[in-house]
C-alpha cells in the first residue's frame, strides 16, 4: 500500500453552544494515500464538512474547537502547528474547494487576481509569472480563451466555469492534498460529470490525495477509491468502494443504498430510511442510529458499538453486522 499523505486519528471537533456541546466530529479516523480518493458520505449535519474544515484548521472559534485527536500530514501533526505555519500549508500543500461555486469567489477581483494571489503567496513568483501560471491553470481545467478569461470577474462566468476556476485555484500550487466539500452539488448533472472527470484527470496528473465530501452515492461510485460513511459525527462504515456497493455492512449504509432509485429491474417503491437525523444536542443512548434502525435490538440501546474490522479493509460500527447480509 502507498504511503498515506494524511492520517486522521481520533479527531474530535466540538461546538460549545448555549444549549450544550455539539459533538460534530467525534472520534473520526481515516487515512488517504497519494493519488487516492476517499469519499466521505452522509446526511446533512453528520460532520462531513466539519471534518474538512478541521483539517484546514478553519473551525470558527468560538464556538467550535478541535478538542482531541491528531491530523498527521506528511507525518507531522497539524494540530500542533502555529497559525503562521498553518497558513503556509493552506492553499499550498492542502487546498480546498467548496460547495458553492456561485459565492466562493470574491466578486470584486478578477479570477486571474484570485488565482495569482495564492501562487504569489506560496511560490514567491512575481505578479507577471503568477498570472501566466493562472492562465496555464485555466487551460488545464478546460476554460476556453484563458488569456482573455483571466481578466474577467466571477459574475461573467457560469456556475460550472466558476467551479473550474475554484479547482484551478486550489491546484495552482500543486497541493499534496485536495479537500473537496460537495464540489458538484450545486451544479447540474452534465456539468457535474465534467467536473468529476476533471478531478480524476488532475488527480492522476498531480498524484494528489483527494478527500471528497458528498451526500451523493452516485458521485462516490464515479470517483472514490475508498469510502467512509458518517453518521452523527462518527464513521459507521469504512471500506473500498466496490465492497460498499456490493456488501454494505451497516444498516445505515444499507438504508442509503436502498433509497437510490434504480433504472432497471422491478419498479418497487423506494425505501427511505425511517425517521430523521437526531438532534446533535440530544443523541440517543447506545448506538446513535438505534432510533432509525430496522434491525435494532436491546443491546443497541444499551451500549454503542466500536468500529471493528469485519474483514481486511472493511470496518463497520454495528453489533449485528454479521447477521445483516
Amino acid at each position: 500500500m502507498k504511503r498515506p499523505v494524511i492520517e486522521i486519528k481520533d479527531l474530535k471537533t466540538y461546538f460549545f453552544v448555549e444549549e450544550g456541546v455539539v459533538k460534530a466530529v467525534d472520534g473520526v479516523s481515516f487515512e488517504i494515500a497519494e493519488g487516492e480518493t476517499l469519499g466521505i458520505v452522509g446526511e446533512s449535519g453528520c460532520g462531513k464538512s466539519v471534518t474538512s474544515i478541521s483539517i484546514m484548521r478553519l473551525v470558527p472559534n468560538p464556538p467550535g474547537k478541535i478538542v482531541g485527536g491528531q491530523i498527521l500530514f506528511k507525518g507531522e501533526d497539524l494540530l500542533m502547528k502555529s497559525e503562521a505555519d498553518m497558513r503556509k500549508i493552506r492553499g499550498n500543500e492542502i487546498s480546498m474547494i467548496f460547495q458553492e461555486p456561485m459565492t466562493s469567489l470574491n466578486p470584486v477581483y478578477t479570477i486571474g487576481d484570485q488565482i495569482a494571489e495564492s501562487v504569489m503567496l506560496h511560490q514567491n513568483l512575481t505578479k507577471r509569472e503568477a498570472f501566466s501560471r493562472a492562465v496555464e491553470m485555466l487551460d488545464k481545467v478546460g476554460i476556453p480563451a484563458s488569456e482573455k478569461r483571466v481578466h474577467e470577474y466571477p459574475h461573467q462566468l457560469s456556475g460550472g466555469m466558476r467551479q473550474r476556476v475554484m479547482i484551478a485555484m486550489a491546484l495552482s500550487c500543486n497541493p499534496k492534498m485536495l479537500v473537496a466539500d460537495e464540489p458538484t452539488t450545486a451544479l447540474d448533472v452534465t456539468i457535474q460529470a465534467q467536473i468529476l472527470e476533471l478531478m480524476k484527470q488532475l488527480r492522476d496528473e498531480f498524484n494528489t490525495a483527494i478527500m471528497l465530501i458528498t451526500h451523493d452515492l452516485g458521485v462516490i461510485a464515479e470517483v472514490a477509491d475508498r469510502v467512509a460513511v458518517m453518521y452523527a459525527g462518527k464513521i459507521v462504515e469504512y471500506t473500498d468502494v466496490m465492497t460498499l456497493f456490493q456488501k454494505p455492512g451497516h444498516p445505515y449504509t444499507i438504508g442509503l443504498l436502498k433509497s437510490i432509485p434504480k433504472l432497471t429491474g422491478n419498479h418497487k417503491r423506494l425505501e427511505p430510511i425511517q425517521g430523521v437525523v437526531p438532534s446533535p444536542l440530544n443523541l440517543p443512548q447506545g448506538c446513535k442510529f438505534n432510533n432509525r434502525c430496522p434491525y435494532a435490538r436491546e443491546k443497541c440501546f444499551e451500549k454503542e458499538p466500536e468500529l471493528v474490522e469485519v474483514e481486511k479493509g472493511h470496518s463497520v460500527r454495528c453489533w449485528f453486522h454479521d447477521q445483516l447480509q
Partner: peptide, 14 residues
C-alpha cells in the same frame, strides 16, 4: 460570513 472569505482563508492568506 461570506463564502469567498472562507475561500480566502483557505488559500492561506493572513
Amino acid at each position: 460570513r461570506m463564502d469567498y472569505i472562507r475561500t480566502a482563508r483557505s488559500k492561506g492568506l493572513s
